[in-house]
Design a protein around this nucleic acid. Sequence first.
DNA 1: AATTGCAGTCAACACTTGTACACATAATGT
DNA 2: ACATTATGTGTACAAGTGTTGACTGCAATT
Lengths: 204, 204
Amino acid sequence: MATREEKKLQTRKALMDSALYLVGKGENFSNVSLREVAKNAGVVPTAFYRHFRDMEELGLSLVDELGMMLRKLMRSARNQQLPVEALIRNSVELFVAYVSEHKNMFMFMAQCRTGGTLALRNAIRSELGYFASELTTDIRQVSMLPNIDSKDLETFAMLVITAVADTTVEILDLPEKSLQQEELIEQTVKQLRLIFLGATLWKS
Amino acid sequence: MATREEKKLQTRKALMDSALYLVGKGENFSNVSLREVAKNAGVVPTAFYRHFRDMEELGLSLVDELGMMLRKLMRSARNQQLPVEALIRNSVELFVAYVSEHKNMFMFMAQCRTGGTLALRNAIRSELGYFASELTTDIRQVSMLPNIDSKDLETFAMLVITAVADTTVEILDLPEKSLQQEELIEQTVKQLRLIFLGATLWKS
DNA sequence: AATTGCAGTCAACACTTGTACACATAATGT
DNA sequence: ACATTATGTGTACAAGTGTTGACTGCAATT
């Protein structure tokens, strides 16, 4: 942490982590104050401005980070040659594990997708849209569901994503590894199976 | 408005409407202050306490109102003897029209479902759950999808609801009757058709 | 080795926030 | 007709908010 640039990036990260921490603590991101964030990051309020114009800009940076995480998640889910059934369960469990490891970030995502500023909402939407289109090309490449054109496929991918994203908050609200959580996961798996069942018979 | 009780209910409603108005204006419900609400309702801040302990309690009352609206919506969608295809489109369009008529309320719902207090989130969840189970018994009564047991059917009903609820914010963000909005609606219809296609072939 | 530039500090400001308390006033119960 | 009671008013306060401007110290440039 000798060089200045490193040090700057370090406190920048501290600020972002601080915001996430507060969201994880139960606060709503749009309610989190600049001062709280600064204090929690061990920095004076005015130092905040050296890194972000305001909380929204910090939020947008968090969305970027979220995007990176999603792509990383996708990479680790890829290239698993499995039957559809197992693939769904596997993906969901992988997702759930990933969410548990990054609770704060996903709480942030869930909150801002519907509750943030317009700019924030749009940023997250486009990130999820990007995720959907990656999912689409992935399915294309495995030449699964060849009877669906790309546009429809993307629509369905979006359905999958919203179904999963929606459950996320609910999962986070339940005690980890609890029976209720398991049930919820089971339910989500079932929903995805339904979607794929429909997809195999869809003709564009 | 002679009697005292009426007058009280009146300003109570004014407070609730005021909160909804502010949400519709773009504010996040969890960011709306007691004072703002009071001022906008044409009442002094301390008068607020005569009706609600705090903003959360007001929020919970709004959820109750939401519940009533959903039930009303459901009633008007019921008893339409139509083929599945037409029924889906019909229901979605009815829902969209209903949302447009009550933008603020649905904005509130979407926000609090993921962004509110834990109590608020749970309240909305149970309201949507109730909606799902009504939808389930409706489908049962028409003896559609007889090969699905009630538990699975409710799971799928929940998928339908989250799919629609999710699109709601996005719809509200777009200019009314715009091309993009129409596209989004078309996309939602397609998603529901996929779900029903899957459901007709599902065996519990 | 001297100079510059920038991350972070400190103090201060004008506001908004939730809430407490004493008070007014008009509908209500007697 | 009178006393009561509950809705709404007014004032006040402590705490927290975003943002300002002048400052300090040290890494980077020269």
